[in-house]
């Protein structure tokens, strides 16, 4: 009897954890786009008022972006192109993100502002979508995981 209960607990925990992992994927997307939108805002104000150089900007990137683009400030300055192989993003999104970082700092001040504005609008739209998807699915996967675990337990044991 105790073994059955333990098996049930293990099964339900395993399926719930799978649900949490799936929900986390959506969280990564949401956090990434949130950070990249904030970065665009910071870059715009930097260009207008503080004139921070691109190496400082790259240095102070949040971890959630750094982990994805896998290029540090030195490599970026020396012209290494950014490419993203993370399967969390679609092919179009990966291309857009890579384009954004690769073309960042290649224009004059006004050109950069227009360029960042363009990408800001693009990223903002995706951020809103991600936020909605995250709200919808964050608890959904966990609930379904736990319930499926219980269902399997009842059927099998």
């Amino acid at each position: 009897m105790i073994i059955k209960v333990l098996l049930g607990l293990v099964l339900v925990s395993a399926t719930t954890l799978t649900g949490i992992k799936l929900a986390d994927k959506k969280k990564i997307r949401r956090n990434f786009y949130n950070e990249i939108t904030t970065l665009c805002c910071n870059l715009k104000s930097d260009l207008r008022y503080r004139l921070t150089t691109i190496d400082i900007v790259m240095e102070s990137l949040p971890n959630v972006i750094k982990e994805r683009i896998k290029v540090d400030a030195d490599q970026f300055i020396s012209g290494k192109t950014v490419s993203i192989e993370d399967k969390t993003f679609s092919e179009n999104e990966r291309r857009d993100i890579a384009d954004f970082f690769n073309k960042l700092g290649t224009h004059d001040s006004q050109g950069s502002l227009n360029f960042i504005d363009f990408y800001y609008e693009k990223f903002k739209k995706i951020t809103d979508e991600c936020e909605q998807i995250y709200k919808k699915t964050s608890t959904f996967y966990v609930k379904i995981g736990a319930l499926l675990g219980a269902l399997i337990y009842i059927i099998v044991i």
């Binding site: 919808k136 959904f140 609930k143 379904i144 319930l147 269902l151 009842i154 059927i155």
Partner: peptide
Amino acid sequence: FRIAAIGILITVICQILKKS
């Protein structure tokens, strides 16, 4: 009891899926 439990779980799963 087993059939009842399956019925309850399936109903709850269906409701969650329909809401999403």
